[in-house]
Design a protein around this nucleic acid. Structure first.
Lengths: 232, 232
DNA sequence: CCGGTTTTGTTCTCACGTTCACAAACTCCT
DNA sequence: AGGAGTTTGTGAACGTGAGAACAAAACCGG
């Protein structure tokens, strides 16, 4: 019995689309804040910074929530996307590693306002334990199991130094966490069924540096780059 | 028409490959730190968390830096990738917006150790100006032009609130910055020729939430996505 | 010097993602 | 009511990326 909710059940949403849905959600919120009640795919696409055809195709994976000749109802579509992503409910989150970055993450208002609730801040350093960051007390890392059990936490954030990341991930997985957002510059090995997403600040800069070098490269490169020109 | 050097430097490297090169670079550094002088594509691939065929194909875009039957010289390959990315030189970087996140970024050691030098921290808030963060004094945002000119800055980092992001980006572009790393949750419009990369914390969490909801929702529907299967 | 072994670099095939183009469906005006 | 004008949803073409398989090239032992 694959009878699911009111909408069609057998939809496999492409990963690339899933990654864009939060962008659409944010764009819709922006439109709603401006008092806009209806928008066309063109409007929403430009607000989200994508092509309108891509937007329509992405939305078509969720169902038919628009009206031909009219467009989309902003609030309705917003709710549908939020429901699809799963941010109509509140997700409890633990953050491990309360250094500079962990501090910033704990203070980041974008979490709370988007369906995520930081239920605990953990750190192995006794000097940090007991301090309060963003209204939440820092607790010893060993409290992980109890917190995950008590709050039914499924998502963990790793903001530790690279050397600690793998062991923190292992411990998280052991307690039942099945989704990890990793800010540590390390490759995590996790069992099947656990999702890991990685955010790496220096990698992003290096990608920019590559393109920057290409742009500026023509003149300075000792190696003659010929007529490529590189002006894209 | 294209006179090429021996290294065939002007080849077009796929974007997906460019995004992985920094990962390989980091993995190689890890191997070198462990005293390993030579490695096979299999070794490096598992350290980087990718498939070995993919790794070899990626490296083949740079040139033939391996030795069949032997593998890759760690230091040599490391240098070649660093040169390709452009991190053999030092890239001056300005960070705008010294809130919690800007603070964390300024303190992030991964920048300095990977070819990036934070030459200035800027903020529009007079209360922050004059304070010193990570050994660098916070200056008024209006100093942007002078700093970019004096230090020949090409890369800017935006860590401001969303509402300020677009105007900061416009100002950056006007001063000659051609690569922007944007941490603000906003879609930036920039002219052709300017690269923007976006890092959005809450979007990453929302993507995890989607998969988490799938896992919890339908048992048989387990969208097997994770499985980054790398061995550390 | 030569065959065997190892490992790279490359080719081929397939899957995925993007874009185009258009029929279907809705509104509005006469 | 009916036709003109919009805008969605989707089928088809196209381009890019991933993975398997293999030939080419290096080393090694005799």
């Amino acid at each position: 019995m694959t009878a699911r909710s009111s909408t069609d059940a057998s939809r496999v949403i492409p990963e690339a689309t899933v990654a864009r849905l939060p962008v659409y959600l944010r764009a819709l919120t922006g439109l709603a804040d401006n008092g806009i009640r209806t928008c066309s795919s063109e409007d929403l696409a430009s607000a989200a910074g994508v092509n309108s055809a891509k937007l329509r195709k992405d939305l078509s994976y969720l169902g038919s929530y628009g009206t031909r000749g009219v467009g989309y109802d902003v609030d309705y579509l917003r709710y549908q996307i939020a429901r699809e992503i799963g941010v109509t409910q509140d997700w409890p989150v633990v953050i491990v590693g309360i250094g500079n970055l962990g501090h910033a993450l704990a203070n980041y208002s974008g979490f709370r306002s988007r369906g995520f609730r930081v239920v605990a801040l953990l750190d192995a350093d006794p000097a940090l334990v007991g301090r309060t960051v963003a209204g939440v007390a820092v607790q010893p890392f060993d409290e992980l199991e109890a917190i995950v059990r008590d709050h039914d936490v499924a998502i963990g954030v790793i903001a530790t130094p690279a050397v600690a990341a793998q062991s923190v991930a292992d411990r998280m997985v052991a307690t039942g966490i099945t989704s990890i957002l990793n800010f540590a510059p390390a490759v995590l090995a996790v069992p099947e069924g656990v999702d890991v997403r990685k955010v790496d600040l220096s990698i992003e800069l290096q990608i920019l540096a590559y393109h920057e070098q290409r742009k500026a490269g023509g003149a300075e490169q000792a190696a003659a780059v010929g007529a490529d020109g590189g002006v894209a």
